[in-house]
Simulated scan of single mutants.
Amino acid sequence: MADSNVKVVVITGCSSGIGLDTAVLLAKEKNFKVLATMRNLQKKGDLEKAAAGTLNKTLFIQELDVSKEESIEKFVKATYDSEGRIDVLINNAAIGQHGHFESVTLEQMQSLFQTNVFGTIRITQEVVKKMKERKSGHIIFISSVSGILPFPFFDFYVGSKFAVEGIAGSMAPFLRQYNIFVTNVEPGPVQTPFVRNIRMNNQGGELDAVDVDAGVDDFSGNLRKKFVANYGPTMQETMQTGEDVAQVIKNCICSEKPSLRVQTSDSIKQRAKAALVDPSGDKIIDELEKLLQ
């Protein structure tokens, strides 16, 4: 069983990006025991290298595929058998999507929602049962500013983040009665392999070999190209590293009363503020429309 002075932290999706950086950062602290999970253990090389001296001391790599019920149940049972508790669950595993609304197949939509929504919520359900018994815990969803803001050509990824944000917000007041906190961490653009993987997940091919405008009219294709070109400078200006986001997550875990929403930079906080005080949504849509022109 884990030392009572140490927080047991489970993080999903740790083969790269925010999950990897958060696992490495927390494992450097003596008061955390990090169970860094990933779907495919063949991809653990980068995490093993980054973990260095913390590997198998404060950071332990384990298999977990949140899109599969059997994997979730097996992992949760084994963790409670060995550790006795999970103090913090960081739901980071996710896949992305980029392209035209009408070009995304039902299979692609289902795959995305299976990981980003259903799998994420299923492991949370299993962990919350135990947290309620102990009357203690913290559930963190790695969301996105896209969880409160629309974003053209990322329709279903945005939809999945909106879904989790809504579920998390609905859970939060009830779970506080059990001393369990719920937080949506909302990054903007992050310099990780996730951006590259978005194209591959959606189109099923190598990044440079895929034409995401195939099968749509020229006008639609040109609109997407304009949006990408016009948004590029803003994305570069607001880009964060995975380490930046990991530090925000750590601060959130260490907070006595964590907030429901935590933006990971001042620029993202300003965008969130603008969206949340615009009941009609017109201002945001007008701004996004300009990026298509």
Rank of each mutant, 00 (worst) to 15 (best):
P279F: 11
F151N: 15
N197F: 11
I90V: 15
V128M: 09
F151T: 12
E186D: 06
V182E: 03
L106Y: 10
Q270S: 11
Y80A: 07
C14A: 08
T37L: 05
D217K: 12
G205T: 13
Q62V: 06
I148F: 13
A229H: 09
V104T: 15
V128D: 05
K257G: 10
I18V: 11
K161F: 09
H98M: 12
K129R: 15
N31E: 15
R176M: 09
R271D: 07
F101S: 11
E107Y: 05
V190C: 04
R39Q: 11
G84R: 08
D46H: 11
P150W: 05
C254H: 00
F60L: 07
E63M: 08
Q108A: 14
Y231I: 08
L207H: 13
A168P: 02
L47E: 06
T183E: 01
M38D: 06
V9D: 03
S16V: 06
S136Y: 12
D46T: 11
G281C: 05
D244L: 01
C14K: 03
N179V: 07
T264I: 04
Y231F: 14
D266I: 10
L288C: 09
G281S: 05
F118R: 05
T241N: 04
V277T: 14
E237Q: 12
Q125K: 15
P189S: 12
A93C: 03
V277L: 09
E73W: 00
I72T: 01
R224D: 05
L89N: 02
A209M: 12
G205R: 09
G159K: 02
A275Q: 13
D218W: 00
C252F: 02
Y231M: 14
Q62R: 15
F227V: 03
Y157S: 07
M131I: 11
L207A: 14
K250Q: 13
A163Y: 04
S160W: 01
I167D: 00
V182M: 01
V66T: 12
E133A: 15
K257C: 11
P233F: 04
K33W: 00
G84T: 06
S144M: 08
V128K: 05
C14G: 04
I11E: 00
A93S: 11
H138M: 00
T105I: 10
D286Q: 13
D244Y: 02
L223S: 03
T115W: 01
A272G: 10
G45C: 07
N197P: 03
T124C: 14
V277M: 07
K130C: 09
F101H: 13
S220A: 15
K43Q: 15
V117A: 07
G137S: 09
P187C: 06
K30F: 10
Q114M: 10
C14I: 05
E126H: 13
T12V: 08
I249C: 01
V127I: 14
V76L: 04
S255I: 04
P279A: 05
P189E: 01
N184D: 13
K7C: 02
V228H: 01
Q293E: 12
C254M: 13
T192Y: 01
I123W: 02
R122T: 10
I95G: 08
N230D: 09
Y178L: 00
S15Y: 04
C14H: 02
D217I: 06
K28V: 00
L26V: 10
P189L: 05
D3T: 03
Q114R: 13
A50Y: 02
E237N: 08
V158M: 07
V88Y: 05
N251K: 13
M239F: 08
G13F: 03
T120S: 15
G119C: 08
T120P: 04
C14N: 09
S71M: 10
